[in-house]
Nucleic acid binder design. Structure first.
Length: 655
RNA sequence: GCCGCAGUAGCUCAGUGGUAGAGCGCACCCUUGGUAAGGGUGAGGCCGGGAGUUCAAUUCUCCCCUGCGGCACCA
């Protein structure tokens, strides 16, 4: 006897083992029709799998929260079937689910074209109509390897060979087509439905390693209903409008051009955002005990050799020979023999040089040394991405030199600062990651153990949920990474906090302890925004260009209705500016409708409309972005209110 | 760096083996209009760069550059 408990709490008894199908049919015919899989004690399994013990069971239908994952993975199998039928000789590799869909990597000489995608999608639809029935077999490992080798599926054979010994080699059949898979799967291809779409083709290295062959990856999306699919596609379209590269152009914030690939030309409006951010974070740092420095842009390669960066990152550094270029047109410009310097890719070695001036006492620690450091990194071409990944970047960098017993306190202090800043920015959707020791690293394991534990403990103490990013730490120490998500769901590291025992050693930083003995300080690398470039990019996408009032490059546009009000408008502008507001004037010979529309598109937070009436009464009519209503206020009141709104969050706290 | 796609006016895009077009934007004129598009006229292009095929290339081929989507990388 098997007792099955249903979600409503009722219990049904069955003679001997049952399947999900049996249970569904036992409940109702219509449920059996809709059933996709079955959830047994929290684990989703195939409808045809046997249940031979008492269990809590849910029938998974399209409406069930677990349905989507199954449908997506079935769609990946569907894709693989269609591809192999249309392009014989193509090998399958892996095809996992991802956010909003799935991909499948294929090994084939010829890449897939956009036209191919259409054909494949059509074939997928046909296979759905064929309603190929799913069944599962468990194979002997050696037999499976031999079988897949024989049919030319060498990647599959490799995957099976690498499966953990304990794991069954499960082969799923959809009709004749079959694949190694963990499952579960839908009862037939018919159950997938047609709410799927192939999105794009891309290259991807086998096993994510650039030394391996490149496979052809097809990305797709799949949903439980056509409605959801449509909504998703619409969401993508909307997200495109938030793209900071697009908004940067539309709002006249910045541009890029080939002569400075990967470096930003900040336009006046864009740089106003930067200035507001910089002024804000500088005040926050001043208040938090940091002292700001400025270090050289070009430093001798010998320093980078000592720090270890030359060995590990030289290929990403801009190297400059320390010599006068030849003025002889027939001779090579550079001799190739000069000593080398490099544009700094980071500020830490320079900060240690400042630390090393004079003798530091334990009483001096912690020293919190900040710099808005402009760094250059020669990033791979394919890595560049708008403001998010650039070759010239300015970090809101700082290094804290402290004793080991001060790490915990400094970490709490930093997490507090970080939380306050992100709260002020309205960016509270943050993913916390603890990046642990990489394969190539400096320092001994005991030190790494201590350092990783210190960071994990700090996050836990702060009540922050985090995940581990195994092996992704810096070569000198583990990192806390603070990630934000862009408009289309890609995540980017913004803030960072890194523990470093190595650089102080390499660059011989010391302080004198209570006994007069020399000691190594610990170095904490940290950035709140990360870089101004990336953070501004993220801000723009987060707010879809509608930046908070205090950050908006143009806060108020004074727009006239008729030229009668021009003189008054000039007066309003002057007073707004005198109150510290970033205001502009629009006295063009255009209708007020036109001006309102244009400045709304320009994401100007406040339009101050003035006509003859306002001029007469010394008033302004304020219209806030996104609102239909205006409010009419006296000029004095309006300026007082707007000036208060324009205060940066830290200043508002103090006001 | 790797795979794929793309590059035509400031922007979005159409088009063609005989050197180009639209909408928006811009300039000028008319319009002085009360909160998301008033009307007219006009300027603006080495059709990404180089080479090849051709009587002729923006169009076809090759190479390069840049951009886009992924992958790899990210101190």
């Amino acid at each position: 006897m098997v007792a099955i408990t249903l979600p409503d709490g009722s219990v049904r008894q069955f003679e001997g083992p049952v399947t999900g199908t049996d249970i569904a049919e036992n409940i109702s015919k219509s449920l059996a029709k809709k059933a996709l899989a079955v959830k047994v004690d929290g684990e989703v399994i195939d409808l045809f799998a046997t249940i031979d013990r008492d269990a809590a069971v849910e029938i998974v239908t399209r409406e069930h929260e677990d349905a989507l994952d199954i449908i997506r993975h079935d769609t990946a199998h569907l894709l693989a079937q269609a591809v192999q039928e249309l392009f014989p000789g193509t090998q399958v590799t892996i095809g996992p689910n991802i956010e909003d869909g799935f991909f499948y990597d294929f090994a084939r000489e010829e890449p897939f074209s956009t036209d191919d995608l259409e054909k494949i999608e059509k074939r997928m639809g046909e296979i759905v109509d064929e309603a190929r029935v799913t069944r599962r077999e468990v194979w002997e490992r050696e037999k499976a390897i031999a079988h897949f080798k024989e049919i030319g599926e060498h990647y599959k054979a490799e995957i099976i060979a690498d499966l953990p010994e304990a794991e069954d080699v499960k082969i799923y059949f959809h009709g004749d087509w079959h694949d190694l898979c963990r499952g579960p799967h839908l009862p037939s291809t018919k159950h997938i439905g047609k709410a799927f779409k192939l999105m794009k083709v891309a290259g991807a290295y086998w096993r994510g390693d650039h030394r391996n062959p490149m496979l052809h990856r097809i990305y797709g999306t799949a949903w439980t209903s056509e409605k959801d699919l449509k909504a998703y596609l619409l969401r993508l379209e909307e997200a495109e409008k938030r793209d900071h590269r697009r908004l940067g152009r539309e709002m006249d914030l910045f541009h890029f051009q080939p002569e400075a690939q990967g470096s930003v030309f900040w336009h006046p409006k864009g740089f106003l955002i930067w200035r507001a951010l910089e002024a804000y974070i500088r005040r926050r740092l001043d208040d938090d005990g940091y002292r700001e420095v400025k270090s050289p842009q070009l430093l001798d390669s010998k320093l980078w050799e000592k720090s270890g960066h030359w060995g590990k990152f030289r290929e990403n550094m801009f190297v400059v020979p320390d010599e006068i270029p030849s003025t002889d047109d027939d001779a090579p410009v550079l001799s190739g023999e000069a000593a080398l310097m490099a544009l700094k890719p980071m500020n830490c070695p320079a900060h240690i040089q400042i630390f090393n001036q004079g003798i530091k006492s334990y009483r001096d620690l912690p020293i919190r040394m900040a710099e808005f450091g402009c760094c250059h990194r020669n990033e791979a071409h394919g890595a560049l991405h708008g403001l998010m990944r650039v070759r010239q970047m300015t970090q809101d960098d700082a290094h804290i030199f402290c004793r080991e017993d001060q790490i915990a306190e400094e970490t709490v202090r930093f997490l507090n600062l970080f939380a306050r800043v992100y709260e002020d920015m309205g960016m509270t959707d943050i993913a916390y990651k603890l990046a642990t020791r990489p394969e190539q690293r400096a320092g001994d394991d005991a030190t790494w153990d201590r350092a990783e534990k210190a960071l994990g403990d700090a996050l836990t103490a702060a009540g922050l949920k985090f995940e581990y990013a195994e092996g992704e730490g810096a070569f000198y120490g583990p990192k806390l990474e603070f990630h934000l998500t862009d408009a289309i769901g890609r995540t980017w590291q913004a803030g960072t906090y890194q523990l470093d025992y190595v650089l102080p050693e390499r660059l011989d930083a010391t302080y004198v302890d209570e006994t007069g003995a020399k000691q190594r300080p610990v170095m904490l690398h940290r950035a709140v925004f990360g870089t101004f470039e990336r953070f501004i990019g993220l801000l723009i996408e987060h707010y879809a260009g509608k930046l908070p009032f205090w950050l908006a490059p143009v806060q108020v546009v004074v727009a006239t209705i008729t030229s009668e009000a021009n003189a008054y408008a000039e007066n309003v502008l002057a007073q707004l500016r005198a109150a510290g507001l970033r205001a502009e004037l629009d006295i063009r010979n255009e209708k007020i409708n036109y001006k309102v529309r244009e400045h709304s598109h320009g994401k100007i937070p406040v339009i101050a409309v003035v006509g003859a009436r306002e001029a007469e009464e010394e008033k302004v009519s304020l219209r806030r972005l996104g609102e239909k209503q205006q409010e009419v206020a006296s000029l004095e009141d309006a300026i007082t209110a707007l000036a208060a709104d324009a205060l940066a969050p830290d200043l508002r706290e103090k006001a």
